[in-house]
Design a protein around this nucleic acid. Structure first.
Length: 306
DNA sequence: TACCAGGAGAGCG
DNA sequence: CGCTCTCATGGT
């Protein structure tokens, strides 16, 4: 592998690639060949195939590559997961969530792609979001170089490109009432009213406000972008799944007011609340669902914490 | 068929 | 505030 500019082994431990790439934070990864599992995707305009191996993650590109920082940054292979999990509060729900999927990670995605993807995510299932994003890329993104054994692939369309297409064309990507929101975001970025790069230097709260100025972007979607693209690890998106987890696991008596809930989120989960959120989300969607068939996995009485 | 999906915004009392 | 309704589309 030395000197091979198309392939690299990224050494990392405690990294569940499959869970991370299919956990609803990114929507462009396609698993192929269940016998020898690997994942095809496009990052920053480059096609890449990833596979988990004993020592870490093997990546293969279609074009030669001397500097792999774009990939290690995306995958966040440098973060010390052990240290992050250690900051979680010690309670039964989080212990179960971490045990159910050790190695689940947060990615560091491109802000524009992340923003548009999550604008399209509202009241959509993950498979549908994947379809919308696929159509968006295939219809409006630049084709990228792929190896002979891979499916054709496209980069995520630029703000300028999406600002130029008609709303009806966006609706053709099956995003429905979200089309004008995507168009407005594209125009805000293209016109310079929203500088996505500048958000990096902002506080989490200021960046949240800037994003929330966009139509179709409320607290939930803003928090997704803050967490998945900018790495604000205290951002805590609350969707239907996480709300379900919070209510069942932490507020089993009566449902808290929005203000009470927000205060709980801000104070309880600690500096890596976003990671905690991702574990709860994944647990509710997967491990807990399976538990319907094997109820023994789930304790019937999760300790009441509040 | 009916229900609902990693929501947001507007209209209401 | 807190509730309800609507928006568009397709998976299950």
């Amino acid at each position: 592998m030395e000197g091979d500019l198309h392939q690299i082994l990224i050494p990392v431990r405690d990294y569940d690639l499959a869970a991370t790439l299919s956990s609803g934070q990114a929507f462009r990864w396609r698993g192929r060949d269940p016998q020898n599992p690997c994942w095809d995707g496009v990052i920053a305009g480059r096609w890449v195939r990833l596979a988990a191996v004993p020592g870490g993650i093997v990546a293969r590109t279609a074009v030669p590559c001397a500097d792999w920082h774009w990939l290690t940054d995306y995958l966040q292979t440098g973060v010390d997961l052990e240290a992050i999990v250690a900051t979680f509060p010690e309670d039964a729900p989080l212990r179960l969530s971490v045990a159910a999927c050790r190695g689940l990670r947060l990615l560091r995605q491109d802000p524009w792609e992340c923003l548009v993807s999550f604008i399209c995510s509202s009241t959509k299932q993950i498979v549908q979001i994947q379809q919308i994003v696929d159509r968006l890329c295939q219809g409006h993104g630049e084709a990228v170089t792929v190896p002979p054994d891979a499916s054709p692939a496209w980069a995520f369309p630029s703000p300028a490109r999406l600002a130029a297409v008609d709303e009806a064309v966006l609706r053709g990507c099956k995003m429905g009432f979200r089309a004008p929101y995507v168009q407005a975001a594209a125009r805000a970025v293209t016109a310079g009213r929203l500088d996505l790069g500048r958000l990096r230097g902002m506080s989490c709260a200021a960046a949240r406000e800037a994003l929330s100025d966009l139509p179709g972007v409320g607290a939930k979607i803003a928090n997704c972008v803050l967490l998945f693209a900018y790495g604000f690890q205290d951002a805590f998106p609350v969707d239907v799944w996480v709300m379900k987890a919070l209510r069942e696991l932490y507020f089993p008596r009566r449902r808290p007011s929005p203000a009470r809930l927000q205060r709980f989120i801000d104070t309880y989960f600690g500096p890596n609340a976003g990671y905690a959120q991702q574990y709860l989300f994944h647990y509710m969607r997967t491990a807990r669902r399976k538990s319907i068939e094997s109820p023994a996995v789930i304790p019937s009485n999760v300790p009441r914490l509040i």
